[in-house]
Design a protein around this nucleic acid. Sequence first.
DNA 1: GACATATTTAGACGATTGTATCAATATCTC
DNA 2: GAGATATTGATACAATCGTCTAAATATGTC
Lengths: 95, 95
Amino acid sequence: MDDSLFRALADPTRRKILELLTEKDRTAGEIAEQFPIAFASVSHHLGVLKAADLVATEREGQFIRYRLNTTVFQEVVRYFMTRFGGGDQKGAENA
Amino acid sequence: MDDSLFRALADPTRRKILELLTEKDRTAGEIAEQFPIAFASVSHHLGVLKAADLVATEREGQFIRYRLNTTVFQEVVRYFMTRFGGGDQKGAENA
DNA sequence: GACATATTTAGACGATTGTATCAATATCTC
DNA sequence: GAGATATTGATACAATCGTCTAAATATGTC
């Protein structure tokens, strides 16, 4: 389990970005306009998320589209389950 | 989902402490001697983990015994499952 | 009470982080 | 190519963080 992963998740703006990407893939601009900080600052957060492999990108003409890398989230859940027994299978369904 | 939780998990020393507590409950000193940093520094980490409600303490004479708060880990797993669909129930069993 | 042990608190310091501004790169349209 | 839009890169700076040392608090033993 990479250190950059947990550091990436430690910031609330980045977690919010991830939740936005849960709904649908979005361009950097679409993401940035959801936050009161500078576009360049959001771009920095996107870079952190990408370095942690939590998101992936694809160029679409002028735009760059971001999407969640769900594989990594599965690894996160496994990390907690295996080490801390943090969730039983049945209970999680109703959460 | 509290911000202090993710910040607490962001440090590798703190994650290592949590893993140590998975094996068995330990006193602050037993935890501290596992790390090459000053006891006071480990104590600081323990404070962060406690503030995030990831661990609980109980005084035992001179000692203070730390234990995992497994409830919070269940919440973490639920956070990722519900928001990111990060783990299916069957697959997690074999992880 | 005096002393030893266990742990935390306080204060300081260098490193990292989040944000800002400005410059640079990439693509599109004309 | 020139200009517009989208995004990132570079640099700076204040705030937070991890660690340290030294002091303070709590308990146990004599």
